[in-house]
């Protein structure tokens, strides 16, 4: 009885690990639609360096000009949204990113709430801040996406 129990537990664990692995591998995006430009910056931190966590400054994670990724052109596909584009470009340029299926917690090890309490990542499309999450904004091609770090509410206008 005991042996059976552990055997079943082991099988369940194996299936779970396999399922996680399979879901990660299957990213079929469809045909190419067009191109967008994307940039990542954290210029607001430069004025708020005194508020930044010690770990960010000691490890020199804040670039001196505040630009983590220069404006670059990315191909987009049928099933793409802003978040998948961001994840892909970060993987290509080997920039660290911590995001789940809907929310961007960190880019380049700069986490939300690490430069003051109301700090975090925001995104802009053609200079405007959309009212939907980054995983729900579908792209048509030709848009200009900017991911920017905010330290105080309203400092990105």
């Amino acid at each position: 009885m005991k042996k059976k129990f552990w055997f079943v537990l082991a099988i369940i664990l194996c299936v779970m690990i396999l399922a996680v692995g399979m879901s990660a591998c299957s990213d079929n995006l469809g045909a190419k639609v067009g191109e967008v430009t994307i940039a990542i910056d954290c210029k607001t931190i430069l004025q708020n360096r005194d508020k930044a966590e010690a770990g960010l400054i000691d490890n020199k994670l804040i670039p001196s000009d505040g630009i983590i990724l220069k404006e670059s052109i990315v191909d987009i596909f049928e099933k793409d949204n802003v978040l998948t584009v961001l994840k892909r470009i970060c993987k290509q340029n080997k920039i660290h990113i911590d995001a789940d299926s809907s929310y961007v917690k960190a880019i380049n090890h700069i986490y939300e709430m690490s430069v003051g309490e109301s700090s975090g990542w925001l995104y802009f499309v053609d200079g405007l801040q959309p009212n939907v999450g980054a995983n729900q904004y579908k792209l048509k091609g030709g848009e200009k996406i900017v991911f920017a770090y905010t330290c105080v509410v309203g400092d990105l206008k």
Partner: peptide, 12 residues
């Protein structure tokens, strides 16, 4: 998922 020293990946 924090931290700079990556040990291994499990899926994503």
């Amino acid at each position: 998922r924090q931290g700079m020293t990556q040990l291994f990946w499990i899926g994503e």
